[in-house]
Structure formats: structure tokens, C-alpha cells
């Protein structure tokens, strides 16, 4: 299957949540090429999460067009484009009774690549080990995710996104539960990932400090619109 080298392309995109009388995002134009680190910032309710979910096709525009790796997000082929992406949602926290171990949660990142009856390979298990060492959670692999702190859970979910070796990484508020040390670690890992894999990273964050110096494109949103941007088309 052929995919475009443009990770995201939004053309005059309007998105609304059903039941709401006003759009959550208006007239958005954005192009993200491969190999770029994009920071999307803005106050609460600016439409940042809506933007990231529209890029992935989780929300569909009612006006305009959204493409992920050249695939229209309304098309059934969007599933194939999503396989090249990693995603860390804003609401990643699991309750204390969630018994899936960290290792299992990271393993689940391989789910879309598996055919029927197929189980994990040794190489994939090695990748889980490597990524967990990178994010300093190797000692937590056999702990139930619900028993971990917010910061530890966030690292586990970022590990799940990275283990897939995505061509595009979508991170929604990835620093929200991390301490200063954790923020430094995640921004370093993300930077190195973009450089090593020539991948794109789209980060939504109201806290710009940990990453702004390394961003190729900075987009600021307010009231569902892009109000300023450096380097975006």
C-alpha cells in the first residue's frame, strides 16, 4: 500500500461534537511533513486534543478534509495509516483495580500487526525490554499498571507507543503527570527518536518549556482556531 510522505494534511477542517451547537475546531489548515517535531500549544479548551484526534481520524470533520499519510480519515483504509502511528491519549490513567501488567500493556501495542492466532516474537519481547530501559521502567514491567503512579503509568503508555516504531508519534499532554526529571527524560527520548527514525512527533501540550527549544513547528491554538504558527504550511 502506498502512503504519502506528508504525515498530516488538514484542509479547511471544521469539527464539531454531536449535540454541540458550536464547532470545536474551525477552518484549520495544517501540513506536517516527515521528520519534524511539531508542538501544538494553547490554553484549556483551545481545541488541541480535538486537533490530534482529528489527525488520527478518531474525529471526522464535517467540513474540509483530513489526511493521515495521504489517506482520507473518512476512508476505511485509515486503519492501515494508523498502524504507522503511536498515540498517547490525555486520559491514559487507569484505576487502582486495573490488573494488566506494564509488560502486557506495552505488548498490546503490537496488536494491530498480528494476524489470527499469531503471538509475540522474541524480537518484539526484546524491543519491549529495550524501550522500557530507555524510559527507566524496566523494574515495573511485571507490576499491575493500576498500582503505579500517574508518572509511571504515563511512561508505560509512551513505551507502548514507541515500541511500535511509529513513523508518526501523537502525544497528547505527555508531560502532564511527570516530574522535572521525567519531563527531561521524555523530551530527550522524543528528540532522539525523531533524529534516529526520521519520524514525526506531534505533541499537544499547554506546558511548552520541556520541548519548545527542539520543536521545528510551533502552532498556537485558541478557541478552536490556529492563531499563530512558526514553520507550518
Amino acid at each position: 500500500m502506498h502512503f504519502s510522505k506528508e504525515v498530516v494534511k488538514l484542509r479547511d477542517v471544521w469539527v464539531a461534537y454531536s449535540g454541540s451547537d458550536r464547532p470545536a475546531m474551525c477552518n484549520i489548515n495544517l501540513t506536517v511533513p516527515l521528520g519534524k517535531l511539531v508542538l501544538i500549544t494553547g490554553p484549556n479548551g483551545a481545541g488541541k486534543t480535538t486537533l490530534i484526534e482529528t489527525c488520527l481520524g478518531l474525529l471526522k470533520p464535517y467540513r474540509g478534509s483530513a489526511y493521515l499519510f495521504g489517506v482520507d480519515t473518512r476512508s476505511w483504509r485509515i486503519r492501515h495509516a494508523r498502524r504507522m502511528c503511536g498515540f498517547v491519549p490525555q486520559d491514559f490513567m487507569k484505576p487502582p483495580f486495573e490488573a494488566y501488567t506494564v509488560r502486557h500493556v506495552i505488548r498490546l501495542g503490537f496488536a494491530p500487526y498480528k494476524s489470527i492466532f499469531e503471538s509475540l516474537t522474541e524480537d518484539e519481547d526484546r524491543r519491549i525490554r529495550r524501550v522500557s530501559e530507555l524510559l527507566e521502567i524496566e523494574d515495573l514491567l511485571d507490576r499491575p499498571i493500576g498500582t503505579l503512579s500517574g508518572g509511571q503509568q504515563q511512561r508505560a503508555v509512551i513505551a507502548r507507543a514507541l515500541v511500535r516504531k511509529p513513523r508518526a508519534l501523537f502525544l497528547d499532554e505527555p508531560f502532564s503527570s511527570l516530574d522535572r526529571e521525567g519531563r527531561r527524560l521524555i523530551s530527550r527520548v522524543v528528540r532522539e527518536y525523531v533524529r534516529a527514525e526520521d519520524a514525526s512527533v506531534i505533541i499537544v501540550s499547554h506546558d511548552v518549556n520541556p520541548i519548545i527549544d527542539y520543536a521545528d513547528i510551533v502552532v498556537r491554538m485558541e478557541n478552536g482556531r490556529i492563531v499563530s504558527g512558526e514553520g507550518y504550511a
Binding site: L58, A81, C85, G86, P89, F92, L108, A111, P112, K114
Partner: peptide
């Protein structure tokens, strides 16, 4: 259930993440 164990497990853990990652 056996054939699609990992995909179903992924959905049981978090449907939105599973969908964003390309699970059908």
C-alpha cells in the same frame, strides 16, 4: 476469542488507543 486474543485484549484495555493504533 483465541484467534483475536491480542486485538480483543487491546480493546478491553482501552478502546480509543486500540482504534488509534489501527486495530479494527
Amino acid at each position: 476469542i483465541i484467534a483475536y486474543r491480542i486485538q480483543i485484549d487491546s480493546m478491553l484495555y482501552d478502546v480509543k488507543m486500540a482504534e488509534a493504533e489501527g486495530v479494527n
